[in-house]
Amino acid sequence: MHAGQVYLFLVALFFALAAGLVGCFALMKRMLLAGDVISHLALPGLAIAFLLNWNPLAGGAVTLFLGTLLIWQLQKKTGLATDATIGVVFATALAAGAVITPREDLVDALFGGLPQVSLAGCLLGLFAALFIMGALFRLKERLALEIFSPELAAVTGVNVGRVNLWFLLLFSLTVLAGLRFMGALLASALIILPAAAARQWTGKLSHFLALSSAISVLSVVGGFLLNAFALHLPTVAPLIVLLAALFFAASLFARRG
């Protein structure tokens, strides 16, 4: 196996671990689908990067984080709910991305690919995943309180606005970490599906977090093996199909606590 493929596999594993955790909180905050849309904020950045021959990830990162900040500000200024503000910014980003992206790069931007990853890229991905996991570990009590009741969280001393911003940024960073190989359309699949499947099996927070991460990691391993030995496709779509099958199987035998 080529070193670049090993690095890609390593990044995918760590990304899966972080995505599984982020997904749990996104599910509890009822922003899984809204979060899915966030990934599309990277499109105009990817497009500009393709046009100018820059690193697509850097371009995606810039518009993703600018879009996230814009959503947070709109939420504060307009009093609209998160999903409404995400909807507004998403539509704008998607349209801008579709207009600017060169036609031949559009499929790559939307569905990702399985690129060779350099050692530096691998280390950067690992660092991002570890940062996301560490930040979530520090924030988990604050997030649980905020999710249960923003009012009670505020009375307890939690800075609710700041926790929400942190979570949006961590969500965006997770999407960004998966953008290169997952693509803008599928980047949030590893955030959504493992958490949704894990929720079918447990009602206890610690079990929920552990199970979601485990499902996410197993699906990456399974998806890569499937692709390496059978399908040989240049995208991660088999991984997502595997995850979706797992979710439907879990929902058939659900025993929620």
Binding site: M28, K140, A144, L145, T156, G203, L205
Partner: peptide, 22 residues
Amino acid sequence: VAADRQLPLRLQDFLDAKIAFQ
């Protein structure tokens, strides 16, 4: 409290969150 009753939180998770935070 308009909390979602479907949240995967046990009562102890909720009380533990305040204990850990404070």
